[in-house]
């Protein structure tokens, strides 16, 4: 029989890792330019889908990259702190690739397909390129496409999301050593931490220049509590190896 208290005492560092990962995911969601249904009709700035779909997409891509890196590194030896950093970096790059691909292809569709210039209605001037935005926003809409600032913001969002997801995965692998259980759990923790911030931004946000970005602290508090709860439960689940194999 495996004692629950012993597992909690042994794996407290994994709980901290899961909480940090959860907060990274929560902050990452605020960086991703999500436009929802209006953006799908080129009537709002951002990617034309919901927060959860984007977060899940980038998170799963990051998880795949991180899982492959974990497999390669663990074949070479034990996985320590420096390996975890490498795995998290791989996951972050995987998620960034997914996010930037989505944004660049989305922009091609908006520019060459719909025929609209990417522009944001939330700011007068793009904070990065200093280009004027207002003349390019079509009347009756709140912007369209992904201007430079949204693209950069989305890339940062992918980085944080992938980093958080991979960190949760690594922490769970330390606990149970079973890739299947760890990945399905990482997905569960990821979804909880992606949906709570999406309620915080009420479904749409343009990126770090959006006034809604100031709501980040509330999401951090909520996701801290939710990830702590998920983390405590998750580290108490042993891998099948601890039952003497199957």
């Amino acid at each position: 029989m495996i004692d629950i208290i012993t597992m909690l005492a042994t794996h407290w560092i994994s709980i901290i890792g899961i909480v940090i990962g959860g907060i990274c995911i929560a902050v990452g969601v605020h960086f991703v330019p999500v436009g929802g249904a209006p953006a799908a009709m080129a009537q709002a700035t951002g990617i034309g889908t919901g927060t959860v779909q984007l977060a899940a997409g980038s998170g799963l891509t990051g998880l795949l990259a991180a899982g492959y890196m974990y497999k390669t590194l663990s074949a070479a030896g034990a996985v320590g702190i420096s390996e975890v950093i490498l795995i998290c970096a791989t996951g972050a790059v995987g998620a960034m690739i997914m996010m930037t691909t989505t944004m660049i292809v989305g922009n091609w569709v908006y520019i060459y397909g719909v025929g609209v210039p990417p522009a944001s209605a939330k700011v007068e001037y793009d904070p990065i390129t200093k280009n004027s935005q207002a003349p390019y926003v079509a009347p009756g809409t709140v912007g369209q496409g992904m201007p430079t600032v949204c693209f950069v913001s989305g890339t940062i969002g992918g980085l944080l999301g992938g980093l958080g997801g991979s960190l949760v995965y690594c922490m769970l692998m330390w606990v149970n050593g079973d890739p299947a259980i760890s990945s399905i759990f990482a997905i569960g923790v990821f979804l909880v931490n992606a949906v709570l911030p999406s309620y915080n931004i009420q479904g749409t946000i343009e990126g770090f220049h959006d006034p809604k970005f100031k709501r980040v602290p509330k999401a951090i508090v909520a996701c801290f509590i939710a990830s702590l709860l998920c983390g405590i439960i998750a580290v108490m689940i042993p891998g099948t190896a601890m039952f003497g194999g199957i």
Binding site: A56, I184, F185, G188, V195, Q202, I233, M236, P238
Partner: peptide, 29 residues
């Protein structure tokens, strides 16, 4: 809720998968 209905369904299964596997694992332990 402002985020579309799918978000809440994914939240349900996100919470559900953690609790379900924990319950089954406790039973085994």
């Amino acid at each position: 809720i402002g985020t579309g209905v799918p978000s809440i369904g994914m939240l349900a299964l996100g919470m559900g998968v953690i609790a379900a596997m924990f319950g089954l694992a406790i039973g085994k332990m």
